[in-house]
Design a protein around this nucleic acid. Structure first.
Lengths: 189, 189
DNA sequence: AAATTTATGTCAGTCATGTTGACATATCTG
DNA sequence: CAGATATGTCAACATGACTGACATAAATTT
């Protein structure tokens, strides 16, 4: 088999004068974190891979998973909320959402205070799918956290939170970031 | 959740029939880790978002980023290696690779022991792009790790490693997983 | 030496999911 | 009432996955 020639891992970052990055500009220069960058890639690749196999049997893809997941977790989410979370266009969302509605994974209900809004709710069928997929992903997470102390698990959570953009958080993100130890996260509206 | 798809036909003929997922099956039931699942989603969304803006200016997408990143980091990677890492088909890779070759971000060289192989190397231009993008992502990582103790940072690394499938790791993954605390690993074979 | 396997490339078509732009409808708000 | 807002929809297009089939050169096996 072919050898891979390895380069110096932690090279000094000598980028051009870091242009206009509003956030994060005050971060001091340091070695490039190739390790974390690549671990994140592989970890996320395998993390989402868990769900893919099940989704295929349902004729769904990741787009459907994301939508039904967040609707299930945050009942009463509006279309606009969902657009903020997923960062896609309403046309893209519309197509995926229509499938989930047609196949009975999600239902809509007009908002009571604002009847233009379409509040989204997962059906029992939708809930079941979400729980199944989240169970697979939880298996992987539990496996990864096994043997780690509570302080270490807390460090993981703290790290992930700090990786997320805090400027202009949407409703769902706000809920997640505010959720401290063991707060149940339902009801966004 | 962003990209990184699965499915392989064409290649992986000799791989073990991943029918039974041997790992992770013995994990006991427990509460669903909604928190980590969603934190991973948002963290990864923003993590890859950093690079997206720069890539757009180059007329590239995430596919090109992944390819030039791994080629730059692991010079002499073969096409087959890259397919293992990215988990895409050779047809998909071919298109993206051709662009990077045509535009001078990557060069090929026939393998010396096996002249059928095309060893891939990043050019200075390719290196520069990779370092620029990795710098942005490092900024975010450094920001997230700031204020965390060395034990906590180690916990993050340990968690991410444990999130990755260990069965049948490809060459690149093996290298990454073997690299212990700050060791600049060279020569695995 | 011949046959087979392997590493890679390529043509051709399809699908999923993202995009933009334009426009319609209902409803809320000043 | 006038305008802004929340949502839906039509149409076209781009990217990056996919499948299947086939081609070539080089290595390996028989």
């Amino acid at each position: 088999m072919t050898d891979i020639n390895f380069k110096d891992s932690d090279r000094v970052d000598e980028r051009a004068p870091a242009a206009a990055r509003p956030v994060l500009t005050d971060v001091p220069e340091g070695p490039v974190r190739w390790d974390i960058i690549e671990l994140l890639f592989f970890a996320y690749r395998d993390f989402v891979g868990d769900a893919d196999h099940v989704l295929e049997a349902f004729g769904f893809g990741r787009a459907q998973h994301r939508v039904v997941h967040f609707v299930s977790r945050y009942p009463g989410l509006t279309v606009a909320d969902l657009l903020d979370v997923l960062r896609i266009t309403k046309q893209s969302l519309g197509r995926v959402l229509k499938q989930l509605l047609d196949e009975g994974y999600i239902v809509q209900k007009a908002g009571d205070s604002d009847r233009r809004q379409r509040l989204l709710f997962a059906t029992a069928k939708g809930e079941a799918l979400v729980v199944k997929l989240a169970g697979l992903q939880t298996d992987r997470i539990s496996h990864a956290l096994r043997g780690m102390g509570p302080g270490e698990a807390e460090a993981v959570s703290k790290f992930l939170r700090a990786m997320i953009d805090r400027d202009d958080p949407d409703k769902v993100l706000q809920t997640i970031l505010q959720a401290k130890a063991g707060a149940s996260a339902k009801d966004v509206t």
